Simulated scan of single mutants.
Amino acid sequence: MLTITTTEALAEFCEEAKKHAYVTVDTEFLRERTYYSKLCLVQLAMPGTDDSNGCLVDPLVEGISLEPLYDLFRDTSVVKVFHAARQDIEIFQVDAGVIPTPLFDTQVASMVCGFGEQVGYETLVRKIAKQEIDKSSRFTDWSRRPLSDAQAKYALADVTHLRQVYEFLAKKLKDQGRSHWVDEEMKILNNPDTYITLPENAWKRVKIRNNGARFLAIVRELARFREDYAQTKNVPRSRVYKDDALVELASTKPKDHGDLGRSRLLLREARRGDIAEGILKAVKTGLACPESDLPKANRKNERLQVNPALADLLRVLLKAKTSSAGVASKLVAPTSELDAIAAGERDVTALTGWRFEIFGEDALKLCNGEIALAAKGNDVILVPV
Rank of each mutant, 00 (worst) to 15 (best):
residue 4 I to Y: 03
residue 8 E to I: 10
residue 9 A to I: 01
residue 15 E to Y: 04
residue 18 K to V: 00
residue 22 Y to C: 03
residue 22 Y to D: 00
residue 27 T to F: 09
residue 27 T to Q: 05
residue 32 E to K: 13
residue 36 Y to M: 04
residue 36 Y to F: 15
residue 42 V to S: 08
residue 42 V to I: 15
residue 44 L to K: 11
residue 45 A to T: 10
residue 49 T to S: 09
residue 49 T to P: 00
residue 50 D to T: 15
residue 53 N to I: 04
residue 54 G to A: 14
residue 55 C to F: 08
residue 59 P to K: 13
residue 59 P to I: 11
residue 60 L to R: 06
residue 66 L to T: 01
residue 66 L to S: 04
residue 67 E to G: 03
residue 72 L to A: 09
residue 90 E to Q: 05
residue 91 I to N: 02
residue 92 F to Y: 04
residue 94 V to R: 12
residue 100 P to R: 06
residue 104 F to A: 09
residue 106 T to Y: 05
residue 107 Q to M: 15
residue 109 A to T: 08
residue 110 S to W: 10
residue 113 C to W: 00
residue 114 G to T: 00
residue 115 F to L: 15
residue 123 T to F: 03
residue 123 T to G: 01
residue 125 V to D: 02
residue 126 R to G: 10
residue 128 I to Q: 04
residue 138 R to I: 08
residue 140 T to K: 14
residue 140 T to D: 13
residue 146 P to C: 07
residue 151 Q to I: 06
residue 155 A to M: 13
residue 163 R to Q: 13
residue 163 R to N: 04
residue 165 V to C: 05
residue 165 V to E: 05
residue 165 V to W: 01
residue 167 E to N: 03
residue 168 F to A: 12
residue 169 L to K: 00
residue 169 L to E: 03
residue 170 A to P: 06
residue 174 K to N: 14
residue 175 D to S: 13
residue 175 D to L: 01
residue 186 M to Y: 11
residue 189 L to G: 00
residue 191 N to T: 11
residue 196 I to Q: 08
residue 198 L to H: 11
residue 200 E to Q: 14
residue 201 N to Y: 07
residue 206 V to R: 04
residue 208 I to Y: 13
residue 209 R to P: 05
residue 214 R to N: 12
residue 215 F to V: 11
residue 219 V to K: 04
residue 219 V to S: 04
residue 220 R to M: 13
residue 221 E to A: 07
residue 229 Y to Q: 08
residue 230 A to P: 01
residue 234 N to H: 09
residue 240 V to Y: 00
residue 240 V to G: 06
residue 245 A to S: 06
residue 247 V to M: 03
residue 252 T to V: 15
residue 253 K to G: 12
residue 255 K to H: 15
residue 275 I to H: 01
residue 278 G to I: 08
residue 281 K to W: 08
residue 286 G to K: 11
residue 289 C to V: 06
residue 293 D to G: 01
residue 295 P to G: 15
residue 295 P to M: 14
residue 302 E to G: 09
residue 303 R to H: 08
residue 315 R to Y: 06
residue 316 V to A: 07
residue 328 A to G: 00
residue 329 S to I: 05
residue 333 A to D: 00
residue 338 L to I: 03
residue 338 L to T: 09
residue 343 A to M: 06
residue 344 G to T: 06
residue 346 R to A: 07
residue 352 T to I: 05
residue 355 R to K: 15
residue 358 I to P: 01
residue 358 I to V: 15
residue 359 F to A: 02
residue 360 G to K: 04
residue 365 K to H: 03
residue 366 L to D: 11
residue 368 N to G: 08
residue 369 G to C: 12
residue 383 V to I: 15
residue 383 V to W: 05
